[in-house]
Simulated scan of single mutants.
Amino acid sequence: MILAAGCVLWRRAPEDRGRGIEIALVHRPKYDDWSLPKGKLKHDETLRACAVREVREETGQECVLGARLPTSRYLANGRPKEVSYWSAEAVGGTFSPSDEVDRLLWLAPAQARGRLTQPRDRELLDALLDTTSLP
């Protein structure tokens, strides 16, 4: 079993974009997809620590974890994978493109939902909107 963790990362929308929140999506050139920040658990790392580390590595953002979201389970290259997710508020940082993640987008929830490649990621976004108190 591959264990991983990630976040549905959000921030308050800038004043010039109106009220509400924006969701962070990352583009992974290896898969040419748009997804939520996530990654594999390191030896002796907790799931929460992994989620925060992956957000920092993939988006450049520091974050504060919020509510636990549903766990995704699926096959990755024929192996079972389990990804634990949290809601996380971005509290600052700067994105730097890498080989793993070359683009970061901040989108309104409806736009983010339409851009996400995997249905399981759309379900996580819906869970964030249904279960978390947001501005």
Rank of each mutant, 00 (worst) to 15 (best):
C50Q: 00
R113I: 04
W86Q: 01
G78T: 07
E82F: 06
E22N: 10
L107R: 03
R28A: 13
R56V: 15
V83T: 12
D16F: 12
R28K: 14
R120V: 09
T59K: 06
V26R: 05
R103S: 13
P37H: 07
A49C: 13
P37S: 11
D32S: 08
T117F: 06
C50I: 10
N77D: 11
D99I: 10
C63G: 02
G66I: 03
C7Y: 00
S87Q: 02
R48T: 12
I23W: 01
E123R: 14
E15T: 11
P119D: 13
D102Y: 02
T117N: 06
D121Y: 15
E62S: 11
L134R: 04
R79V: 15
Y31L: 14
T131N: 11
I23R: 00
L107S: 01
R56H: 11
A24L: 06
E100H: 13
G6R: 01
V83D: 04
N77L: 14
E57A: 15
P37A: 03
Y31C: 03
K81E: 07
E54C: 08
S72G: 10
R103Q: 15
D16E: 15
D130T: 13
V8M: 05
V91W: 05
A49G: 12
A67P: 11
W86R: 04
V83G: 02
A108D: 11
P29W: 00
S133L: 13
G6T: 14
L124D: 10
A67R: 09
G66D: 04
E54I: 13
G92M: 04
L124R: 03
P135G: 10
Y74F: 15
A67N: 14
L75E: 14
L36A: 01
A112L: 01
V83W: 00
L116H: 03
P97N: 06
H27G: 02
Q61Y: 03
D102W: 00
A13E: 00
P135L: 06
F95K: 04
G60I: 12
M1G: 14
I23K: 01
C50L: 08
G66P: 13
R122T: 14
L41K: 01
A49Q: 15
S84T: 10
G39D: 09
L105P: 00
L69I: 04
P14D: 08
L69E: 01
E15K: 03
E62P: 02
G66Y: 03
K30S: 12
P70Q: 09
D102C: 07
D33Y: 09
L25F: 04
P97Y: 12
K38L: 03
R56I: 00
A88E: 11
V83L: 09
A4D: 04
E123Q: 15
R103P: 07
S133D: 14
W106G: 07
R17E: 07
T117Q: 00
W86T: 05
H43V: 06
L116K: 11
R17C: 08
A108Y: 02
R73L: 02
